[in-house]
Computed example of a mutant assay.
Amino acid sequence: MSTIFTKIVNGEIPCHKIAEDENYLAFLDITPLAEGHTLVIPKKEIDYIFDLDDDLLAGLMIFAKKIAPALQQAVPCRRIGVSVIGLEVPHTHVHLIPLNSMNDINFTREKMKVSQEELKAIAEKITSFL
Rank of each mutant, 00 (worst) to 15 (best):
E35T: 14
I41S: 05
L33M: 15
D53H: 04
A34C: 12
L28A: 02
L28K: 04
G59S: 08
A34V: 03
L28M: 03
Y48R: 13
P32W: 12
V40D: 10
I41P: 03
T38I: 06
N23K: 15
H37M: 12
E45W: 02
D29R: 07
A58H: 07
L33N: 14
Y24I: 11
T31H: 14
I30M: 02
D29F: 09
D53Q: 05
F27A: 08
F27Y: 12
L28I: 02
I41A: 06
Y48N: 15
L39A: 07
D54S: 14
E35N: 13
F50H: 12
V40N: 09
Y24H: 10
L52Y: 09
P32C: 11
D51V: 02
L33Y: 09
G59T: 06
I30H: 00
I46Y: 11
D53W: 02
D55L: 10
Y24Q: 09
Y48T: 10
I30F: 00
I41H: 04
T38L: 07
K44E: 15
L52A: 09
F50D: 11
K44I: 13
D55M: 12
E22P: 02
E35I: 13
L52R: 06
P42M: 04
L25R: 07
E22W: 00
P42F: 01
G59Y: 01
E22Q: 14
F50A: 02
A26W: 04
H37L: 10
H37R: 10
V40P: 08
D29V: 04
T31P: 00
D55A: 15
K44C: 02
Y48K: 14
L33H: 11
D55H: 04
A58F: 04
E22N: 14
L52M: 10
D53T: 03
H37S: 04
Y48D: 14
D54Q: 13
L39N: 06
E35M: 12
D51Q: 14
A26K: 06
F27T: 03
E35H: 08
E45C: 00
A58L: 06
Y24W: 10
K44Y: 00
K44R: 15
F50E: 10
D53L: 02
L28Y: 04
G59A: 06
N23C: 09
D51E: 15
D54W: 00
E45P: 01
E35S: 12
P42S: 10
T31Q: 14
K43S: 06
H37Q: 12
L25E: 07
Y24S: 08
L33T: 08
D55T: 14
D53A: 02
I41M: 05
Y48G: 00
G36Y: 04
Y24C: 09
L39K: 08
H37P: 01
L57V: 00
K44M: 11
L60N: 01
D55E: 15
T31F: 13
K43I: 07
L39V: 06
L57D: 00
L57I: 03
L33A: 12
D47H: 12
I49P: 10
A58Q: 08
D55S: 15
T38M: 07
E22D: 15
E45Y: 02
K44S: 11
D47R: 12
V40T: 09
D55R: 13
E22I: 05
D55F: 02
I41R: 05
T31W: 07
N23D: 15
E35L: 13
T31G: 06
L60P: 01
L52Q: 09
V40F: 07
G36V: 01
L56Y: 02
I30C: 01
F50M: 14
N23V: 01
A26P: 11
K43W: 08
K44L: 13
